Amino acid sequence: MQRVTVTLDDDLMAELDRVMAERGYQNRSEAIRDLARAGLKQARVEAGDMTHCVGVLSYTYDHKARDLARRLTNTFHDHHDISVASMHVHLDQDRCLEVSILKGSAEEVRHFAEHVTAERNVTHGELAIIPSS
């Protein structure tokens, strides 16, 4: 492990201390390491510099919409190579939530998630990408 000296302005230091208190960090080093990892992960995602990843796709949809459940199921079956697992939750009389774990190249995972969330009557969708290497 290496020691690094960093100078931060007072406002940024106050924000870091606030985040540390909210999340229960024991010291600034732990907080800065986690923030650095998150920033580096985000930079890799934005740069397209990630070959393999795990994705968590969450989305809501109207389960009464004509053929939507069938289309979604077919989409997952057609991409069984990247679809690892899914969880289905009934939110209310009309809406369902699905959370799916995906694994593959970042490009394939992103493309698949965009295809699912673009389906008509899929109301909200979000993909979280986590590097697997």
Rank of each mutant, 00 (worst) to 15 (best):
A36M: 12
G125K: 00
R28A: 08
R18L: 12
T73D: 15
A69I: 01
H52K: 11
D78G: 13
Q26N: 11
L40I: 14
H80D: 08
R37I: 10
L91C: 10
K103A: 10
F76I: 08
E126W: 10
H79F: 07
N27A: 01
I32P: 07
G104M: 00
L97G: 03
L97F: 08
D34C: 04
E108K: 14
D92I: 06
T5N: 13
I130L: 15
L35I: 06
N74P: 14
R3E: 07
H63G: 01
N27S: 03
R33E: 10
H77E: 10
E98C: 06
A65T: 09
Q93L: 10
K103F: 02
D34Q: 07
V89R: 01
V109K: 00
T7I: 11
D94C: 05
V19H: 08
G125P: 07
S100V: 14
F112W: 09
C96F: 02
C53G: 01
D81P: 13
T60R: 01
M20W: 04
Y25W: 01
I101D: 07
S133R: 13
V89K: 01
Y59L: 02
L16P: 10
A31H: 03
E107T: 14
E98H: 10
N27T: 06
D94Y: 08
T5C: 04
D62C: 03
M1S: 13
R95L: 09
D9K: 03
K103G: 12
E107P: 15
R37E: 04
E119T: 05
T73S: 15
L97Q: 04
L8K: 02
L12E: 12
D49M: 05
F76E: 12
R70K: 14
Q42C: 00
M13E: 13
S29Q: 06
I82C: 02
T7M: 08
S58C: 03
L68S: 07
V116N: 07
D49Y: 06
H88R: 00
A43Q: 15
D9Q: 06
L91K: 03
D10Q: 12
L57T: 04
V89W: 01
L8T: 05
K103M: 07
D11Y: 03
D81L: 02
R44T: 02
T75R: 12
A113Q: 01
A106P: 15
